[in-house]
């Protein structure tokens, strides 16, 4: 297969995927649309975490807290009568700054220590959501979060709101695609592969580490801003450590360091409970087993399996081409 046909095939697959995401929901009921919207939102948060973890190599167990910060920002601001755009600006700015600050420990400590600092932050954020009643209404939560209007076009209907979330996902995905190919993305990957070497090559590792955290976290905030009007009710329970762990598993299961990884991971994590609905409470057990088996088999996730398969086929094709070319090269 030549490179050109392969690009065309990839473009075709992408187009088919987008068409499915646009057309299939027309057949879905209210609940199906809710689930798909949730998938889009969780994908955005997972894309952010993938930038921090998959590309820059910094472990974060705080992404759920940033979704929470975004959701509370949206809930508080929009129930005061302000538009969702204002909430988006506030949430992104807030998460960017907090994410930047959270990156500082990453400059000092690595791996498990960093996991625990971010884990501590995540738990602290939950305590603030629960205890600061003057701001967050505590365990009673904030009710009646309105769905936004876009240029005077109300998005209250489930289908319209789904398209809104899908468009947001599209924008975020395109942004991530661009970022990974930009010099910044290359600097992130250099950071992941070998920070010492990156530094010796003149990459400002300090700035890029903080940036990786800040950008990843602000995408968590974006997801939160969409989450609040989708659910229309915000209380502290969804934003425990469990959400952060779940987002981390989405990234790893899909394949960290692959652009499509978070989309796939979020799809499994959001849809699996629906597929396994007949098994009642068993789905978490099945999911946990699936994650363990998958990781034992392929630590780079599902896309890692695909990637290895393609690499093997390429290698085989190349060696076949070499052996075919050999007799001509010989005199």
């Amino acid at each position: 297969m030549t490179g050109r046909t392969k690009t065309m095939l990839a473009a075709l697959a992408l187009a088919a995927g987008i068409a499915a995401l646009v057309l299939v929901p027309l057949l879905l009921n209210r609940y199906g649309l809710y689930i798909l919207s949730m998938w889009a939102i969780m994908s955005i948060a997972a894309i952010g975490l993938n930038l921090t973890l998959g590309y820059a190599g910094q472990v974060s167990l705080a992404q759920g807290a940033f979704v929470g910060i975004g959701a509370y920002a949206a809930a508080i601001i929009t129930t005061q009568g302000w538009p969702l755009v204002a909430a988006l600006v506030v949430a992104v700015a807030l998460c960017f700054v907090i994410g930047w600050l959270l990156g500082y420990p990453a400059l000092r400590v690595q791996h498990h220590y960093l996991a625990f600092v971010t884990l501590a932050f995540s738990t602290l954020a939950y305590l603030v959501f629960r205890n600061e009643e003057w701001l967050t209404k505590g365990i009673y939560g904030i009710t009646g979060v309105p769905r936004p209007t876009l240029f005077g076009w109300p998005l209250a209907a489930p289908l319209r709101f789904y398209y809104f979330c899908l468009a947001a996902l599209g924008i975020v995905f395109a942004g991530a695609w661009w970022l990974v190919r930009s010099p910044w993305g290359r600097a992130f990957m250099a950071l992941r592969e070998n920070p010492m070497r990156a530094m010796s090559l003149g990459v400002d590792t300090r700035r890029y580490t903080l940036m990786a955290f800040a950008i990843g976290s602000s995408l968590g905030g974006v997801a939160g801003v969409l989450y609040a009007p989708l659910v229309e009710f915000i209380d502290p329970t969804p934003f425990t450590l469990g959400l952060s762990l779940n987002l981390l598993m989405m990234v790893i299961v899909g394949g960290s360091g692959f652009l499509f990884g978070p989309l796939l991971g979020a799809l499994i994590s959001v849809l699996l409970p629906e597929w396994l609905r007949f098994s009642e409470g068993l789905y978490l057990i099945v999911y946990a087993l699936f994650v363990m088996i998958l990781l034992a088999w392929s630590p780079t996730g599902i896309l890692g399996i695909v990637d290895r398969y393609l690499a093997r086929r390429r290698a085989r094709a190349a060696s076949a081409a070499r052996s075919a070319a050999m007799p001509e090269a010989l005199p």
Binding site: V59, L282, I285, Y287, M292
Partner: peptide
């Protein structure tokens, strides 16, 4: 899992904790 490094194993134990709890 040990040969794959620290992170995949750590995440597998997270899954194990969900598995045991549920």
């Amino acid at each position: 899992m040990l040969r794959h490094g620290v992170l995949p194993l750590a995440i597998a134990t997270m899954a194990l904790s969900i598995f045991l709890k549920d």
